[in-house]
Write a protein that binds this DNA or RNA. Structure first.
Length: 96
DNA sequence: CCTATGACGCCGG
DNA sequence: GCCGGCGCCATAG
């Protein structure tokens, strides 16, 4: 559900969905990566805007590539204008 | 059954 | 503002 060109964090998702811990988000995404679900996991970063999960992608560089394809600048495994492209799940409510 | 680990984050010093 | 410690839920050994 994360809009293209935008990214969010494990914490934001965990908090918004009351998952109880950011670890669950990583765990869920890892599982989703094992399915055919079209989950844009590459848009999920840690609280520092780092591509912490890039290792879970087929080519670890895929995460960065996908982000850059959406116009997100990634530098040294980190989103450059992170605070600018950061997207909080609560924005879903605004759209709805 | 208990311990260790993981795509993480917050609190206290 | 940096560093260390603790929590959190699920899975694996």
């Amino acid at each position: 559900m994360i809009p293209e060109g935008r990214v969010t964090t494990y914490g934001a998702i965990a908090d918004f969905l009351s998952l109880g811990s950011a670890r669950m988000v990583g765990w869920a995404l890892n599982k989703c990566g094992n399915t055919d679900l079209p989950i844009p996991a590459h848009r999920v970063l840690n609280r520092l805007g780092e591509l912490s999960g890039r290792a879970a992608f087929k080519p670890p560089s895929a995460m960065q590539t996908l982000l850059e394809k959406e116009g997100i600048i990634v530098e040294n495994n980190r989103v450059k204008h992170f605070k600018d492209v950061f997207w909080h799940p609560e924005n879903l409510l605004k759209d709805a």
